[in-house]
Design a protein around this nucleic acid. Sequence first.
DNA 1: CGGAATATTGATCAAGATCAAAGCGAGTGG
DNA 2: CCACTCGCTTTGATCTTGATCAATATTCCG
Lengths: 230, 230
Amino acid sequence: MLTEALYQSKHTDRRFSALKSASFREPGFESRAPVTDFPGMLRSFDRNALIYAENDPATCFYRVVVGAVRSSKVLFDGRRQIAAFYLPGQAFGVELCTKRIFSTEAIVPSKLMVMRRNTLHSEHQDPDLLHRLYTMADGELQRAQHRLTLLAKTAQERVATFLLDLNDCGEAGELLHIPMPRQDIADYLGLTMETVSRVLSQLQDAALISIPTCKQIVLRNRAALRRRAG
Amino acid sequence: MLTEALYQSKHTDRRFSALKSASFREPGFESRAPVTDFPGMLRSFDRNALIYAENDPATCFYRVVVGAVRSSKVLFDGRRQIAAFYLPGQAFGVELCTKRIFSTEAIVPSKLMVMRRNTLHSEHQDPDLLHRLYTMADGELQRAQHRLTLLAKTAQERVATFLLDLNDCGEAGELLHIPMPRQDIADYLGLTMETVSRVLSQLQDAALISIPTCKQIVLRNRAALRRRAG
DNA sequence: CGGAATATTGATCAAGATCAAAGCGAGTGG
DNA sequence: CCACTCGCTTTGATCTTGATCAATATTCCG
């Protein structure tokens, strides 16, 4: 199944109109990074729309302008592992492989800058571009390796780590906007939805955070949170 | 603390003699990849010798010629997460970062090809080399992301995955040589030593593997093992 | 042969999963 | 405008997996 951006383009209009609906406004997820240095086409994706699927040829890479994206893989029996979340300003799909290993989906209605990779197979001609791709892949590697330490951590530590990481890549403020549902967080951390929810409640009881709505979390005591993150 | 290869060189002679001892012979871990295409110095490291430490400046990258290497990180309370193992033919330390995020150590007496990175900051001059570095970092990324799926897996699945992965990067034969102790496997998979040992025994009882000695495992039924790997 | 390090096996315990029910909130239609 | 519904979240009760604690067995050395 080919689901790369070209396929998506058939539905762009419908999706774009969906984007304009009132429900789209996601405070805290406006574009923060300059996108002008990233030539390509702007495309819109509905909530849960597939951006590319496992085994698709890797013809494009992407940068989130507005919204949020998850990359994931489903095991034979339905368990799902989320490999990464991408927020505005972050690039993804920069791996050098020809076939996608994870599929990616929009978590909320999102706008992505899409760049075709075959315009990049002139990579050898443009060491600068090559270097930038390498740098992006390297960032991805750093984050993946950082996440491997989750294997050694408890549920509390995993959730605390998640909140702090999300805080680092979002704005500096104490109010965190959580674009993804609890199930996504669970599949990202290797826990169940229920455990994530329980741990968040515990952290609230301990006055480390507060949860005004389930999509908003206030970090009340980042130092203590960092201590619990291991 | 600076522990890059230059520091190590002080001890090279002593280590090299250790390497020559009879105990060094590690069947199945001879050099399999050509190293001639990898200019650099050959250095020897004792068992458990530090190759570089967390926070060291990243001045070199490496390729295993003989032996086995682990890269790891220790949490504040002593828990350890192993990020990767490197076997003969595999390169490591190719991240673009300036400071090391993980430390690396020789698991058994090892010989490494060491290449200084500052000879590489002429990267822009050599797009071919840049491309090769990118390719290596990309391989590292693939493996790290693959390993993230461990978070969703049970102990049996983790151990089965480990055995198959080790088999993939070793020779084609059914006899697997395990250079690392059980504790390393445990810290790699996010389990305890005891659980690793128990699961291996279970797999042996189920006739999927046999364990002639604790450093040797025979894969008796790879298809079934793959099924258990999730 | 002997002793230290590493591995295996057993018994118990606890963290997190599972199963189940209730609560909440946003969008829909009467 | 309110009630209804559907999807998501929270909370509770119980169970299972893997951790922990402890003893024994191997292996690898000098």
